[in-house]
Design a protein around this nucleic acid. Structure first.
Length: 590
DNA sequence: CAGCAGGGGGCGC
DNA sequence: CGCCCCCTGCTGA
């Protein structure tokens, strides 16, 4: 303690810095207070915006631009090892790296603009002195890092001190030039903006929601423009460069890690084209009977067949390209579609690296949060969980009113359906903890348990149950809780129903069939494999894409039997009839 | 109106 | 059993 002349006492914490670093390391180890998740090569790394933005202007800018409480940032073309090393570097200020790995590490650092590795590092407390020393860059160059600004060839690092194992210790003080490749910041397409398909497959990215502006860095140059890059997943086309192949492999690995929907593995991104008469692609070449017209109610079909200007054969799979000759607001021409289908094949066989882009880039962890009401294990009552807090309503109206209050209070609301509770005390709901949900998601995506859990067998194997419970994990899904009470409560509430043995490992919702669960999982993974050829809309379900494509045309297959009203969706017509012609409906039914 | 998501029929392996 | 597909209900704009 130093007594200053003015009578003020200067209290100095001697071990402040070391304590800070120590605490920081602990927080990282325990994954406490994590508010951002980095996804890389199928792995998830909880991190802290504060640390990332401190160490990287790239992250800083990214976080400034996104309002997400907990964005998930998918880092493409960066190896997991490199990311782990960079995280250690950022949290600890140093990292040990094998010399042979230094090159890729530096590349990754450049992409992420990591201070001290790729971007000039300056002492914030001593700017004037620095400028004197290095007026051009304002950065301090460590004497040990003999890295020429004009040549970042890692072989130059051989002059640096290397320990016996060939591991280099990279210090914060080591600086590279600012003259590095700037990470390409990808802009999210307006979901309503029609795409130019000639580039759409290459440039389409994840169906992120509007508030998720953080984007994955794209260190590698964009895939080649020779049209080969759209080749089927993982295949290295003649025109592909090594990075593209790497990216494909990485994406494939990621997909394997996902292990959620086998249907997506082989054909990660599916963009339906205009020649896809029934919108179902090759699988449905003989899908004539499936056209919606056949399924119309009698009255509708009668009206429909007599409808003006609309060819019923449209639904028979014979002339459905007419669909795309309908006036459309899209600038996506039929020629574009056919060209894509015939030539570059960018739509159907999008490369896996493209699919990697379609993965939930910077998707809010909010979207991973729990969904839907569940059932009270004791009373059987339906419980509606607030999306913003831990409030639980037993009445839907009450639930809606409660949430409306949040909205009125200006609670940030994602445009997507699922939300991260803003103040979620752990243990209220299995999925209200960000850490827990990430653990769970991580387990879903990575753990070999995921396949077994997806099998959904709920045969009550006591031994299995007990063993799993003892280990803190649910034997039927990937739910984890250190609290045995919470865990057993989860098991009771989520897996007691024999009718719905397939439980979502993230939100615990039960499903009667495995494939329904698989589709449901797309909510959590952000997968939207079905892309509209007219715009950037993507859907997790093909049937929903069909409906969407209809919206591009003026075709409204469902006609009201009582008036001239027509609807594009059957349900909408139903609503119309019940609303506008209730008396007629009643008389028709009696 | 359009989008999302769950349920379930049906088919092929 | 896995998958494709359609149907359906709900919801927000």
């Amino acid at each position: 303690m130093v007594k200053m002349s003015s009578g003020l006492l200067s209290l100095k914490w001697n071990h402040h810095r070391s304590t800070f670093l120590h605490v920081l390391a602990n927080i990282r180890r325990k994954e406490s207070y994590s508010d951002v998740t980095l996804a890389c090569a199928g792995k998830f790394y909880p991190a802290h915006k504060l640390v990332l933005s401190t160490c990287s202007e790239y992250f800083e800018e990214m976080f400034e631009r996104t309002q997400c409480k907990h964005p998930v940032i998918v880092l493409k073309d960066i190896g997991a090892d490199d990311l782990e090393a960079l995280l250690s570097y950022m949290y600890d200020g140093e990292v040990n790296v094998l010399q042979e790995n230094l090159s890729s590490l530096i590349k990754a650092a450049e992409c992420l603009k990591i201070k001290g590795l790729a971007v000039a590092d300056s002492d914030p407390t001593d700017r004037t002195k620095e400028k004197k020393l290095h007026p051009s860059s304002g950065s301090s160059i460590n004497a040990n890092s003999n890295i020429n600004n004009s040549n970042r060839d890692v072989h130059r690092n051989e002059k640096r001190p290397v320990n016996g194992s060939g591991i280099k210790r990279t210090n914060v003080n080591s600086s590279f030039s600012e003259d590095v490749a700037q990470p390409i910041k990808r802009r999210r397409p307006d979901s309503r903006t029609p795409l130019n398909t000639s580039a759409s497959s290459e440039e389409q990215e994840a169906p992120v929601t509007s508030n998720e502006s953080a984007a994955a860095p794209e260190p590698a140059s964009p895939v080649g423009e020779d049209g080969n890059n759209g080749g089927s997943g993982g295949e290295s086309q003649p025109g592909d460069d090594a990075k593209s192949a790497e990216a494909s492999e990485e994406a494939n690995n990621f997909l394997q890690d996902l292990n959620v929907d086998a249907g997506v593995k082989a054909e990660p991104v599916e963009v339906l084209d205009a020649d896809d008469l029934t919108f179902d692609g090759r699988e449905d070449e003989d899908a004539g009977p499936d056209h919606p017209g056949e399924d119309l109610p009698d009255f509708t079909e009668e009206k429909f067949s007599g409808g003006e200007g609309e060819d019923p054969s449209l639904w028979g799979g014979t002339d459905e390209t007419d669909l795309f000759s309908q006036p459309s607001t899209s600038n996506f021409g039929e020629d574009d579609v056919k060209k894509d289908a015939a030539g570059g094949d960018k739509s159907g066989n999008t490369s896996s690296s493209d699919f990697a882009r379609s993965l939930p880039v910077a998707r809010s962890a909010a979207d991973i949060a729990y969904a839907s009401p569940d059932t009270d294990a004791v009373t059987g009552a339906i419980r509606y969980h607030c999306m913003h807090c831990s409030h639980i309503s037993l009445d839907h109206e009450q639930h809606k009113q409660h949430e409306a209050q949040h909205r009125a209070q200006g609670v940030h609301t994602e445009t997507y359906t699922y939300h991260q509770p803003q103040s979620a005390p752990y243990g209220i709901h299995p999925c209200e903890s960000t850490d827990l949900e990430l653990q769970m998601l991580s387990r879903v995506l990575q753990s070999p348990l995921s396949s077994s859990s997806m099998d959904g067998s709920v045969t009550d194997t006591v031994a299995l149950t007990n063993a799993a419970l003892r280990s803190g994990g649910c034997p039927y899904c990937n739910f984890i809780s250190p609290d045995p009470v919470v865990l057993s409560s989860h098991v009771r509430s989520s897996h007691s129903s024999a009718n719905k043995p397939y439980s979502c490992p993230v939100c615990s919702r039960g499903f009667s069939r495995k494939n329904n669960l698989q589709v449901h999982m797309r909510i959590h993974t952000g997968e939207k494999p079905f892309g509209c050829p007219h715009c950037s809309y993507r859907s997790s379900q093909k049937s929903n894409l069909k409906l969407h494509i209809l919206s591009h045309s003026e075709i409204k297959p469902y006609a009201c039997p009582y008036c001239d009203h027509r609807s594009s969706q059957k349900i909408n017509l139903k609503m119309h009839v019940y609303k506008k012609h209730p008396a007629l409906v009643q008389s028709a039914t009696t």
